[in-house]
Design a protein around this nucleic acid. Structure first.
Lengths: 249, 249
DNA sequence: CAAGATTAAACTGTCGACAATCGACGATTA
DNA sequence: TAATCGTCGATTGTCGACAGTTTAATCTTG
């Protein structure tokens, strides 16, 4: 996407990264619904369409598999992941788990600089809310949460968050919209930040639970609504686990 | 390719899964130290040695990359991951995070059957302790913890645990030994199980913290000791790569 | 007309081949 | 002597080709 800056500040070489490009193209096709959940991703077909060989397509598919957008079936190929309720629940459950942890860690390692960064991002959220650009809003929302993980300073935790975020982006892309009132969302970040600044573990986890749990329920609801029309499958749909109901502000 | 002659007792793998076999071979080479941390994994070299083409080797490498055993550097190839203290701390930090969560979830979903399974596994741990087979002991230890994740019933969480376990196995493989008193270890699992049976979240997390934290400190200590002699690098990781000495025939 | 068998089409898993790129080494120049 | 540049071998990124499977389509039968 954005080329890295060379030591001398030159615009740097273009994206000679073929697999990266292919991965992005595939990802877009998926979130835009051109490759509906459950559909097969034929290596040769994609390759022909893009004018490349199968090798880079395969690698790109593996990349998306790692991110959870595709699932590989040994001798049958790659398929766009079906979004069963269960999967979504599992994703949010895991996110809840690591976000609590990140929150507590971030509080321990908070510096004046990092605190300001969080504050600024909340401002950005408010400003973005006026733009009526849902995709952008979602992106800035993630940015805030990502900041928390950066401050927590555990690279592995951060990577995990990025992977989950990629999947959630797909979900949200398929759902179409997420926020009814962007400003409301922006506001709900404030008590979380306050808790982190206060450095009180219980309060932090409580607010994370509330915040993430809210999104969880919201997404779950929308997915359930759209299940028949969209390619979103309800499939086996095992137990539905909701977060331990958090404590509101 | 030539069917891998089973050198007595080792897993007779499905001959169909080439990449799986290669991945296992590479993994063994790594934990046995034949491919020291930081060394380069040359696709063509491995391929020639195993009598296969580069394609499956590449896929296997990607698999191990996903598990964190290898790191890929764009146009430079795969390298055996260096175990900096920081990485180990990050791994254990994450493990602690998800294991607490799994413990609490498992408690909620505990059934008489799953409880018995845990009990039985503790028995196995005790019995294994008599065998003086460290590798086996580590394996059975993981099995116990894995059971908890299975009971927690979040497939994503389980996958994550498996990935972490693979990395920790590498660490432990490089360290050589881990447990001074196997029986002691077996015993320390009991209060954890008791806490889960009791279903008291605080007690569960406390015991998980103690149990995992113990291993964390222990591994950290050993790693720090061995840092100079083994290929385990500390922070700076001043990057001298040993010539990629291949896997001896 | 439907269930099963058979054949053809479509794909994935592997392979071997090249060109582009990276890193090491040594010549060249201050 | 130390820093820089050019050359050469080693290795990855891609490609097109085949063989063995899986899936789809067609043909038999009861």
């Amino acid at each position: 996407m954005r080329p890295m800056s060379s030591p001398v500040g030159l615009p740097a070489l273009a994206d000679s990264d073929l697999v990266g490009q292919i991965a992005r193209i595939l990802m877009q096709a998926i979130v835009q619904g051109r490759l509906p959940p459950g559909s097969k991703v034929v290596e040769a077909g994609i390759a022909r369409e893009l004018g490349v060989s199968r090798a880079p397509v395969r690698e790109a598919a593996r990349l998306l598999e790692k991110q959870g957008l595709l699932v590989a079936s040994p001798r049958r190929g790659f398929f766009v992941r079906k979004l069963e309720i269960r999967n979504i629940d599992e994703i949010y459950d895991l996110r809840l788990c690591i976000e609590r942890h990140a929150g507590v860690l971030a509080a321990q390692r908070l510096t004046p600089q990092s605190r300001d960064a969080l504050r600024r991002q909340i401002d950005v959220l408010h400003r973005t809310a006026d733009l009526d650009d849902p995709a952008r809003q979602v992106e800035e929302d993630y940015r805030f949460h990502r900041l928390i993980f950066e401050i927590a300073d555990n690279r592995r935790l951060l990577r995990l968050f990025d992977d989950l975020a990629a999947e959630l982006r797909m979900v949200i892309g398929l759902i179409g919209r997420l926020y009814d009132d962007p400003h409301e969302i922006a506001r709900t970040h404030e008590p979380l930040l306050a808790a982190i600044e206060a450095g009180h573990p219980e309060r932090i986890t409580a607010h994370v639970d509330y915040h993430i749990g809210h999104a969880w329920r919201e997404v779950g609801k929308l997915v359930r609504e759209l299940t028949p029309s969209t390619g979103i499958a309800t499939e086996p749909q095992g137990g539905i686990l909701l977060p331990a109901n958090g404590v509101p502000a």
